[in-house]
């Protein structure tokens, strides 16, 4: 796998006239866990969709693996939506076989081993699974893809604390963070504090701070939660 890279230069995204993102530039290079942190409505989702090639910037450039992004970037990017995005008529088994056929980078073995660990019923239709299990299954699909870039939009939001902990564990266990670049958004910093290598703070569609998490702790002598409170105030 090539070294993962995400590159944004003067990226602005407007919906009608309303700007959702304003003049964002940064470059993320190398594997690791990158957290996009900010309140709801700060532009996190828009940013991640732009990176995943599912939106076009109104101006500026978004490149992943040195190529401008489009829907076709999905061969390098696994995107985990915050929505219930699975086909409800499939079973977990059908879902995994579907992905195995459709995505050459998909590891069926990895998917099934995660499923076994989660004790999911592979024959049950997805629409009959609990919300937590649907979230887990969605994650299994994203984590089974051996692609350089993983984009996860609010993987923890709207779930019970226990499920959230479980999901974090699943990500840590199965994301190949020594090779993959995992970028995830959340507004609950405390929960992911210890998992982040790198943070990107967002406010009102702007990127206000982008730094290595340990460097921030060292420099400021305070937690990311405290830093977030400081910079978002």
């Amino acid at each position: 796998m090539n070294e993962p890279e995400i590159y944004l230069k003067n990226v602005t995204k407007k919906y009608l006239r309303q700007p959702a993102l304003e003049n964002i530039s940064f470059q993320l290079k190398g594997s690791g866990v990158y957290g996009v942190l900010g309140e709801n409505g700060s532009g996190k989702t828009t940013l991640l969709k732009l990176i995943a090639g599912l939106l076009r910037p109104s101006s500026g450039t978004v490149k992943v693996m040195h190529r401008p992004v489009s829907r076709l970037s999905s061969k390098d990017i696994a995107y985990l939506s915050d929505a219930d995005s699975l086909y409800s008529f499939q079973s977990a088994q059908q879902l995994i076989h579907f992905w195995e056929k459709v995505a050459p980078d998909f590891s069926k073995d990895k998917a099934f081993s995660m499923i076994r660990e989660l004790n999911l019923d592979v024959n049950m239709k997805i629409k009959n699974l609990s919300k937590g299990n649907r979230a887990r299954l969605k994650l299994v699909i994203a984590l089974s893809r051996q692609v350089p870039v993983l984009v996860m939009d609010e993987p923890l939001s709207g779930l019970d604390p226990l499920v959230r902990e479980d999901i974090l564990k699943l990500i840590v266990m199965n994301a190949d963070v020594e090779q993959q670049l995992l970028i995830l958004s959340t507004h609950e910093v405390s929960e992911v504090e210890a998992f982040l290598d790198h943070v990107i703070f967002m406010k009102d569609g702007k990127c206000i701070l982008e730094e290595n998490a340990e460097v921030l702790r060292e420099q400021k002598g305070q937690s990311l939660v405290a830093t977030m409170r400081e910079v978002l105030a």
Binding site: V177, E178, L196, D197
Partner: peptide, 18 residues
């Protein structure tokens, strides 16, 4: 292993590597 310890103590594997 890096991953085992990461999961055990609840941190990012890269932190363990470091």
């Amino acid at each position: 292993s890096v991953r085992e310890l990461a999961v055990k103590v609840g941190v990012n594997p890269n932190t363990v590597s470091r």
